[in-house]
Amino acid sequence: MPDGLSASAGLPGLRKGRGAVSNPAIRYESTAREAFDDGWDTLADFSELPPLPTTLLRERAKTALTFNDSPDIGFDRSLNPYRGCEHGCVYCYARPSHAYVGYSPGLDFETKLLFKPDLPALLEKELRRPGYEPRPVALGANTDPYQPIERSLLITRQVLEVLERFGHPVTIVTKSAGVLRDLDILTRMARRNLVHVCLSVTTLDANLARRMEPRAAAPWRRLQAIAALTQAGVPTGVLAAPMIPGLNDAELERILSESCRAGATRAGYVLLRLPLEIRQMFEEWLQAHVPDRAARVLALVRETRGGRAYDSRWGLRQTGTGAYADMLAQRFQVAAARLGLSGTNARSQPLDCGQFAPPPERAEPRQLELL
């Protein structure tokens, strides 16, 4: 294992197979809970905490498509079959959104998962609205559409079936090799220039990945997925994200090189983002897993954010500012140019919106009339 990376076994407060160390208070609630020792040494030893089970909760979605006007991302609409993500990536920028539904961005985010079974039907209804103008829709912009529960729920696959029937373009970002299950649909859509897929690769160190992203696919499985998608003719890229100063950013060139070797033709990167509760959770994670490097990592993060933990300004939130952030950007540009990798922005790699055509509505089955 890398220098300073602790093994998780026996570390106090860690749950096996989970990324977050704690369950921060929900910021919209007026009360907060705090652990309290009642005098019987009840807080003395957390090293034997049992694994937390995953709970599935049905959500009645009001809409399928979510629109945005952010100027620094390459799409204006997205689809999210799930809230929360079992991958448990400790740095995930989507964690704070769990507070909107009354759950903590910490362990709740990766154990209390909301799924939207009516999403495919809602999507079809919205695509049939008069005046709808098609543009590439991002699948996986918030939480991973191929997290483990997708294996049985199949909501992402049903969404892709709708998009294929309508001739609607889609971009997919995932950390899961489970995307290969839908290779049949993706291959057909790729022939029509209707799909791009991007695998997110944070590190090639399996030990580090297991601690940062405990239930995501191993790094080598993601590279295999890039290779399989490319061989099937599906345009595939790599997203080196997030790059964490002092922890995994030294791997940037190798991630791009190995992904290119696997068949990736486009690439992007994102600097670590620590909005809202993520700052606390990431600091806890550093202290638990890399205590000797925690102060250095946090100091470098602040250096790239103007002295703060996070800078949310458009155009800067993805890449940061300052000498360290500029150096990372230059390293990426040099490596991408050397490898012949283009950008991952959908606007620079246009998909075909001209094939969009709502198919005839399916007739509802009628009850047989009595004679």
Rank of each mutant, 00 (worst) to 15 (best):
I255W: 02
A241H: 03
D249G: 11
S259N: 11
A241R: 14
L229T: 06
R273H: 12
S259F: 00
V234P: 14
L274T: 14
Y269V: 13
M243R: 06
P275I: 13
V270E: 15
L239K: 03
R279P: 03
V234I: 10
R273D: 10
S257G: 14
V238G: 00
L274H: 12
A228L: 09
R273F: 08
P275G: 10
Y269N: 02
P242Y: 08
E251C: 12
P275H: 08
E251D: 15
P235N: 14
L274D: 12
N248V: 01
A262P: 03
G268S: 13
Y269K: 08
R279Y: 09
I278Y: 01
P242G: 11
G246V: 06
S259A: 07
L239V: 08
R261K: 15
P242I: 09
R279I: 03
L272A: 13
C260M: 00
Y269S: 02
P245S: 09
R266H: 07
G237Y: 05
L239N: 14
A241F: 09
G268F: 01
L276K: 07
V270P: 05
V234Q: 07
A264H: 00
I278R: 10
A250M: 12
G268R: 00
D249S: 14
I278Q: 12
G246M: 10
R261M: 08
A241S: 15
S257F: 12
A241L: 09
L272S: 09
S257Y: 11
E251F: 05
G263N: 04
V234S: 07
